[in-house]
Design a protein around this nucleic acid. Sequence first.
DNA 1: ATTTTTTTGCAAATCATTTGCATTTATTTT
DNA 2: AAAATAAATGCAAATGATTTGCAAAAAAAT
Lengths: 150, 150
Amino acid sequence: MKGHDHAHHKEDLAERLKQAHLSITPSRLAILELLHESHRVWSIEQLIEALKRRPKALKGSLVFTTIYRCLLKLEEAKMVRRVDFGDGVSRFEFDTGEGHHHHHIVCTQCNAIEALEDCHIKEIEKNVKKLGYQNISHRMEFFGLCKGCS
Amino acid sequence: MKGHDHAHHKEDLAERLKQAHLSITPSRLAILELLHESHRVWSIEQLIEALKRRPKALKGSLVFTTIYRCLLKLEEAKMVRRVDFGDGVSRFEFDTGEGHHHHHIVCTQCNAIEALEDCHIKEIEKNVKKLGYQNISHRMEFFGLCKGCS
DNA sequence: ATTTTTTTGCAAATCATTTGCATTTATTTT
DNA sequence: AAAATAAATGCAAATGATTTGCAAAAAAAT
Ligand SMILES: [Mn+2]
Ligand SMILES: [Mn+2]
Ligand SMILES: [Zn+2]
Ligand SMILES: [Zn+2]
């Protein structure tokens, strides 16, 4: 059962790579599998460590640059989303699509990261409090085409 | 009139430095003056250029490291606030106090930066649209003490 | 005025990210 | 299936903003 599921996922992910005109490589599949299974954000270093510890580890060595370039491509292809907490390290998560826009909360003490499912801006703060967080602050900036440029 | 105002500001800023137990130096005063007068965010490079072009330019050379360390101190002292748009460059603005928490919008075309006065999260997006921006996206993350840490 | 503390200037170190290039792998064409 | 073409990978080196070390200069305290 699980085997089938995994196989299905792998095929599915490979298919999405094909649709995005990206070569199907072990690195890319391994990254996608891990991101898809785990609903969390990963730094590149974390990804490398996790991939090394996998039962079916990649044959080739796991190199920063390779993972980095894979993630760039996957980001372009909208299969992976980059998350930035402003600490100088990029993190990545599986991109579940337009309909699943969301944010995260980072513990200022232990740096634990939790997803805030869905983004109802007006209700987010309440939900954050409900999760039991204290001393909540947030980071938010907007981006868009200004009058002069559009 | 203007002379008086400026003098007043300078004294005022110097006073705030004193209260924060920070030495009063030409660099710090110059930075504070510029930030205080201009209601905008500045990168360190921008600050240096602007300070060079000032009528009463600083005697000493304007060095990145010095401005950098001044800003760090001023940030600690809550006189300056750091703004991060995730482009790898830190920007700074005068900190007008707790009551004036706000965000900004960056044009994805010309990189113009505009302040969004006040932060009524639920209404912000509407206001952004009213300002004439298109293709609006935003960056927002929360930070706080999680249950386990508090 | 002298001493003590802090800041400044310049160079060098950091650190995550990005790039160059030869080699290997994947895809496309015979 | 083999050869040719295009793309990805591994390793080293380059970037670029930020951060640090330390001696000289300036500010604050005595
Ligand atoms: Mn997430
Ligand atoms: Mn502002
Ligand atoms: Zn959102
Ligand atoms: Zn806010």
